[in-house]
């Protein structure tokens, strides 16, 4: 039973984008608060904290967000044959509205116009990572469903966004249908250079590298013999 206390590196290594959520299990207010509170601890420029969060539980609003999201998932599928969506992404395309809670993450400006995409998303991405880590530690999963940001007018209408707000992403959150586990990532050696670009790093995998505890591995991880 998750109690919310979890080792930092266990959380970092096993927080996966989770799109298949249990529709029947709620996310209590207390946990939503903890997730948001973790989010706002994140790095942000000049501590200006130019973020706002809308916690959506109302089924009618979730329905509208879900319809918008489905439209955009269909657009992605039809406009780019090379971008194959995985089963989780397709699932969420159909079931966004049934997420127990959807947190809409917005960037705000100090004026009367919304910030541009790069500014708003840049200001909120560190917070979003903290939120996903916190959700994981509390026994939930979530993911960044950002494609809706192309439709600011629709989001403004559905959510009544203020004139200074840009909706950066939806974060549907809930108890995962499956489980968290390990992720596949390029190793450090392939993405790191020493002193100059192209100069291969001398960093080696050390003896004290993080090793996952058995109970944190998903079924899939165990079958693949990972960890």
């Amino acid at each position: 039973m998750p109690t919310g206390s979890m080792d930092l590196f266990d959380a970092i290594y096993t927080t996966r984008a989770t799109r298949k959520l249990r529709h029947d299990l709620p996310v209590p207010d207390e946990d939503v608060y903890k997730i948001l509170d973790a989010g706002i601890q994140a790095a942000n420029g000049g501590n200006r904290q130019v973020w706002k969060f809308i916690v959506v539980r109302d089924p009618r609003i979730k329905r509208q967000l879900g319809d918008l999201y489905r439209e955009l998932v269909n657009w992605v599928t039809s406009s780019n044959p090379n971008r194959k969506l995985d089963s989780g992404e397709l699932y969420l395309g159909e079931h966004m509205a049934e997420s127990p809670v959807i947190i809409v993450v917005c960037g705000i400006s100090s004026g009367n116009e919304p910030p541009d995409e790069a500014t708003a998303v840049g200001a909120t991405m560190p917070a979003i990572e903290n939120m996903l880590l916190a959700a994981r530690a509390l026994g939930y999963g979530g993911n960044i469903s950002a494609v809706v940001r192309r439709r600011q007018d629709d989001l403004r209408r559905i959510l009544g966004l203020g004139p200074n707000a840009y909706a950066a992403t939806l974060l549907p959150i809930g108890v995962p249908q499956g489980s968290h586990g390990l992720k596949s990532r390029l190793p450090v050696e392939e993405v790191t250079y020493d002193d100059t670009w192209g100069n291969p790093t001398r960093l080696k995998r050390p003896a004290s590298v993080w090793k996952p505890k058995l109970e944190l591995l998903s079924e899939g991880d165990r079958k693949k013999g990972r960890g």
Binding site: L36, I40, K52, F53, I54, V56, R57, L159, G162, A165
Partner: peptide, 9 residues
């Protein structure tokens, strides 16, 4: 101070 419920404001 930074959170709304359901809709803005």
């Amino acid at each position: 101070e930074v959170t709304y419920s359901e809709r803005w404001n």
